[in-house]
């Protein structure tokens, strides 16, 4: 057996791959479910916090900044573990899936709040004044004038952050979530062969490459002619 053959037999073993393909596929479903939930709830919460922050109510803003800084500094793994193993002492027992979802959603909320906020503050003060001078209210100005400009600026950093945090679904393995990496590593231990890990890697590519391409499309769409 040549070195090449041994390499292929180890990392791309057809028999092993075929056997564990269904597991990887079911892992993909779990990862997609988690990812969609995290992205939707994380971004919605982040945008909501940024909007509340724009009201400039001081005690509320201190609270928002504290929460955001907290979730930005803690490693996501720590949050997942605390939630899964800690909350049961408070008579709440979230599943591994729920712990992973909520933890990563909080992290995404924190990072996206900062990004949305930066976008809102980057819109020139004159835009507010022009809109308010024609009689639009604070809320109407925010929605019709400021947010469309702010969101356009936030799309590149937001996509990067969203992808990075969504990949964190792999951390769910530590609390027994059967997502891609979880399925792949148990397949590796059962088959004594790392091929399932390669399939896992391929599964991540299949999931995330389209997201990156979509993000690029959005950037073009939101770039108005200067």
């Amino acid at each position: 057996m040549s070195t090449w053959d041994r390499f292929v037999d180890t990392f791309f073993n057809g028999k092993v791959m075929l056997k564990y393909l269904p597991d990887i596929l079911s892992g993909m479903v779990v990862t997609i479910e988690l990812a969609v939930l995290i992205v939707l709830s994380g971004l919605a919460a982040g945008l909501a916090l940024a909007l509340v922050r724009s009201l400039a109510i001081r005690p509320l803003n201190w609270l928002i900044i504290f929460i955001v800084d907290l979730f930005r500094s803690l490693p996501p793994l720590v949050i997942i573990v605390l939630m899964y193993f800690g909350l049961p002492y408070a008579e709440i027992s979230p599943s591994g899936f729920v712990s992973t979802w909520l933890s990563l959603a909080f992290v995404l909320m924190a990072f996206s709040e900062e990004i949305f906020w930066a976008g809102i503050t980057s819109v020139h003060k004159g835009q507010w004044e022009a809109s308010r001078s024609t009689g639009l209210s604070f809320g109407q100005t925010l929605i019709n004038v400021v947010l469309p400009q702010a969101l356009r600026l936030t799309i590149p950093p937001l996509t990067n952050r969203t992808i990075a945090i969504t990949k964190g679904t792999a951390l769910g393995t530590v609390v027994a979530v059967t997502e891609i990496l979880g399925e792949a590593s148990s397949a590796v231990s059962n088959s004594y062969n790392p091929s399932p890990l390669m399939m896992g890697a391929a599964a991540y590519l299949v999931l995330f490459l389209p997201v990156v391409v979509l993000a690029r499309r959005l950037e073009t769409k939101f770039a108005w002619k200067r």
Partner: peptide, 17 residues
């Protein structure tokens, strides 16, 4: 009230989008 008072700014402040 502001509808009755038009204002034009030095830097135009048109909505670029």
């Amino acid at each position: 009230a502001r509808q009755r008072i038009g204002m034009v700014f030095q830097s135009f402040n048109l909505y670029p989008h």
